[in-house]
Write a protein that binds this DNA or RNA. Structure first.
Lengths: 371, 371
DNA sequence: CGGCGCCATGCAATCGATTACATTTATTTC
DNA sequence: GAAATAAATGTAATCGATTGCATGGCGCCG
């Protein structure tokens, strides 16, 4: 709303000339035109010849005013070009009208679909979506703490499991409702919406086993990540259940990046006894792995089968098309937003489950084949 | 900030018991502990034994209060756990403290890096970033208009060239400063930050020409998009300058999607006289094209050379690694945010250029080779 | 020493809406 | 037809900060 001149110079002159009230209104009765840049509820009330309370009610509780009055008010709003000042409304209602989404690395396309789901749901509910990147170099815990405070947002969605709201100073009642999405933190029991990561990883392993593979490796995500642990654990327990060996030299370190996949390929190539199939903890690493092998003159799935995880856009068009574990990303965003909004509106007495787990699905394409 | 009980039941009792002021303060003098959930500037003033004006000044204009007072105020803020209520501040200052970024399809990873640049710059300047997806089905022009109004945001970045702020009803002085980013609209002259699209497309064509290709085709973006037109025009004029033919059956329709690239591949395969090189209007279509050919048993760059556009993450790890035109996406986001903030703070008297063009760069990888 | 000006601070109006409570008007009930 | 009840509207306090104006204290100058 930057700098505002409520009454233009031309109008001021007119004002001195006729000293009428319509001048202060900023509403030119003659022309029936809007002349004030930012009419307030007072202006509407004046034009509609009712009190501001009535205007407010006509907007917020239409059933509380008579049909006739409603019409008059709507009409006045249109004539003045009035828009509710959200800031004033929020101040009075003690809310911020926004939810904050804390994203680790906004540049990562994995999050954009989730964000899209969140945004769709939130905007449908009349909430603004504020985003902040938690991994920007200049972002201090101090600033994060700022976002976690209730007077910044009505609610918070954390896509970054490393953020721990329970560690910020100040009583928990200064925090708005919080929901983790995708990731979570094992050191607190805040509600979360997540995929069945270990189940998905198990699907991948069983798929490979079903194709006859008995030597199965895994490319891990970054060490400090909860998804990494879940997916690894899913792989290990599936291997165990199938009576297969989990050889430590077949578990390659990674960090969810394409480059990490390429590095894993180099390690794979250096092995004496190579696994015949690889389950990667995400699609990027699977692609990087395939790409690394390709540069070495090997081919997927001829030389090794590869399963990814996530089903990112490119997976389907990659060469070879990537067999992967699909997670409904847009859906998880919607689900997290819905859960959060429930908590915001519910005001504490919450009956919905603390943890919601969304199923994952195996998508078979061309990067896997019989051993 | 949802529903708030300012004084807990336990405290109320204590309050009746000793009827002291410290009760109303919500600050337990004995323990030196914070007991009020949301202390206000009044509480700080009381604890610091100064007026609210002084507290406010100590925060906003530290040089306006004495050193001693500043210390006392800071101390009181820490003891009470006070945080500025941004809503109240914004109301008084007639600002919203936020910029809105209107994105066409948030799910598209192309935008996430740009968003990241915008967010980094804005948060450094103390502005919140609000995002909205303009292509959600339930988003009406009405709602977009809501975002375009100055009392929603202090400024606006449009990543969607199809949005036309000049068409919304109401005087232009009800709009906050606006900057287009990446895309723009030819029907108005709002400031914009963009890449050199035609120059980039020309780079691609000259690269192919330099490799000896004389039959060059192009896969277009969606018809209504300004980038599509610029890139096509860049291709055509480069072809012209090199004395090459721009054959209409070598210009394939597309829409920036992977699938469109695959469709173009089908069309290419169906041609009698095929171009030996293709410049795609973006990387996704280039990948889709390559993938489509691969499924037909053909290979890039052996059978045809392909240049993409954008240099998305996957380009480097695609098989073959994609030759493409790199655009500094994060940088354009920063640049747009900087331009916008300049306009917000500058308050109208703006000297920076209305259109800023960022250069594009050719990245040669393995999807192109000599004819 | 009186007057001027500056500095630090306080008082109170203000931003623009919402809403508890009061008041008026209409409707129902006996 | 009077009393009770319900519906519609108005009055004014309120949300929590910022800031124009007023004031008191202090130093400086002639």
């Amino acid at each position: 709303m930057q700098s505002i001149t409520f009454i233009s110079v031309a109008e001021k002159k007119k004002c001195q000339a006729n000293s009428g009230e319509s001048c202060f209104e900023g509403f030119d009765e003659q022309a029936g035109q809007v002349t004030k840049a930012f009419p307030t509820i007072q202006d509407v009330a004046r034009v509609a010849k009712v009190s501001t309370a009535t205007v407010s009610r006509a907007l917020s509780y239409p059933e509380r005013v008579s049909k006739e009055t409603r019409r008059v008010v709507i009409d006045a709003i249109e004539r003045t070009g009035y828009r509710v000042n959200q800031t004033a409304r929020n101040l009075r209602r003690k809310q911020s009208g926004a939810i904050v989404v804390l994203v680790p690395n906004l540049g990562n396309p994995f999050f954009s679909k989730i964000l899209s789901g969140i945004e769709a749901t939130a905007s449908r509910e009349g909430l603004n979506v504020l985003i902040a990147d938690t991994r920007q170099p200049q972002v201090s815990p101090r600033l994060i703490g700022e976002y976690l405070h209730a007077n910044r947002a009505d609610g918070l969605i954390l896509l970054d499991g490393a953020i721990r709201p329970d560690l910020i100073p100040g009583a928990p009642d200064r925090r708005p409702p919080i929901v983790y999405c995708c990731e979570w933190n094992e050191d607190n029991d805040l509600p979360s919406v997540r995929f069945d990561n270990s189940g998905g990883a198990a699907l991948a392993v069983r798929h490979l086993h079903g194709l006859g593979h008995r030597k199965i490796g895994h490319i891990l995500g970054p060490g400090d990540n909860v998804l990494t642990r879940e997916r690894e654990q899913g792989v290990r327990s599936a291997l165990g259940a199938l009576g297969l060996e989990a050889r430590s030299d077949w578990f390659f370190d990674g960090d969810f990046s394409l480059a990490a996949g390429a590095r894993a390929a180099a390690h794979w190539l250096a092995l004496e006894d190579r696994p015949t199939a690889i389950a990667a903890a995400n699609d990027e690493m699977a692609c990087g792995f395939i790409s690394g092998l390709h540069r070495a003159g090997l081919s997927v799935p001829d030389d090794v089968s590869v399963v990814g995880f996530d089903d990112i856009d490119i997976a389907e068009q990659f060469i070879p098309a990537l067999t992967t574990i699909r997670q409904p990303r847009s859906e998880i965003g919607e689900s997290a937003a819905t859960a959060l909004i429930g908590r915001i509106r519910g005001g504490g007495s919450e009956t919905s489950p603390e943890v919601k787990v969304l199923g994952a699905e195996l998508i078979v394409r061309s990067s896997t084949r019989a051993a």
